[in-house]
Design a protein around this nucleic acid. Structure first.
Lengths: 228, 228
DNA sequence: ATTAAATATATTGTCGACAATATTAAATAA
DNA sequence: TTATTTAATATTGTCGACAATATATTTAAT
């Protein structure tokens, strides 16, 4: 156990370049490095007390992940999502998470289904107690979706949804300080989805999940129309 | 026109790091750098006549794109897909390309639909002439799918499908020298899909595309079962 | 002769310095 | 004063050298 822990820690931040990559990625996702802001190499190198070589490698890696954009001889900037791009991503998410839900209905273990139901009940209690506390709602919603995606047992799907798309949507929310208005009947929808998974009805669970996500997108698109 | 061309060229290969990134990416996708093979920094630096700094940045960028894997103090290797991963990606593709097809039915211009139909007819002629010429078939199939994905007008979807998933599947085919056996009635399926798009029936076109792709996956999964 | 330890070699990771380019500030002209 | 050109400054891109780590080879021990 100890061994595993220390190994993980070592493998997590072995080289300076690796460590910088993790720190910068987290900073971007959390919004500490704001969308569209310049990434100054001398400044960051000084701040972290390292030379520019590993820093530039970390930035290159972020560039490969499309979290930063670089212009030759000008510098790197944190990516900045437009509303249009958020809508585009939402379509991708609808397709992918619908599929994840279908696979979850087929592949989730009984324990995983149980855990999902438990999660839902906890969130419902929180809802009763702290009504209107948007933070818990949002986190709860995220937990729910995470749990289902994990249940697909499809590593590639999990990777893309949980480590790329969710990050991007989170960045966007921070960028525009817009908390997505949650559909009032989100809990009902969640219950219906879980019921379909429990019955191992893949087609239905996919359909319900897609409707759930496209409903959220329609909210976004309305904002889009309002602002343009 | 000339201006656009030169600008593109300049922006395409401005810095050494950028140029190396493009060259290595192409080499990996084409299989010139074989899946799983080691990427030796001294060797490549000598081969391209550059220092290791920009080379390492290019490799870091490829790492961010998940085309190479790095182990600290050991080195970088070209990723190597397992059959299982190929199947996982196929599920993603089914979901994404199904969605792309639905969007294409909604968003394709008349010209784009015309072009798609033309493409199909050309491929049919080639089929008649050069029967059994697997290369043309495969390329033709790819053209068809590209064309529809483009028709979705969803840039994020286009990026992911055309610049990431297709590359991975191509790498896999090369890695195992397996040309995916094409379903005999692929042309019929293609025709049905185009017909649905032409009638702007998004739901049907999505359904047909998904069936088309899942049929291919079943072939793969059979190979998987045979080999294990 | 085979395994283990110690050494030697090669590769990776990081640094500081310099060259090339872009940005900013100053100087000149209108 | 404003616009344009020129000089100064700062940032990015690349290099060669060195330190840290891993791999290969040799030596020693059983």
């Amino acid at each position: 156990m100890q061994n595993t822990f220390s190994e993980q820690n070592l493998e997590m931040h072995r080289t300076i370049s690796d460590s910088l990559f993790c720190k910068l990625q987290t900073a971007i996702i959390k919004g500490e490095l704001k969308a569209g802001s310049k990434i100054s190499e001398p400044e960051l190198a000084r701040k972290f007390g390292v030379s520019r070589a590993p820093l530039r490698e970390a930035i290159s890696r972020l560039e490969g992940q499309k979290l930063v954009e670089r212009r030759a001889h000008v510098g790197a900037r944190v990516v900045s999502l437009s509303l249009k791009e958020l809508v585009e991503i939402s379509y991708m998410r609808e397709a992918l998470e619908g599929m994840a839900c279908r696979l979850a209905a087929a592949n989730m273990t009984e324990e995983e289904v149980f855990k999902l139901k438990y999660l839902l009940s906890v969130h419902e209690k929180n809802e009763d107690l702290k009504e209107g506390h948007a933070y818990y709602q949002k986190e709860g919603d995220l937990d729910f979706h995470y749990c289902i995606v994990q249940g697909s047992h499809n590593q590639k799907l999990i990777q893309l949804l949980c480590n790329e798309l969710y990050y991007l949507m989170r960045m966007y929310r921070y960028q525009f300080s817009v908390d997505t208005p949650r559909p009032k009947n989100a809990f009902d929808e969640h219950h219906a989805i879980v019921a379909a998974i429990e019955q191992r009805d893949g087609a239905l669970s996919e359909q319900l999940m897609r409707k759930h996500i496209s409903a959220a997108r329609i909210n976004i698109e309305q904002q889009f129309n309002d602002k343009c």
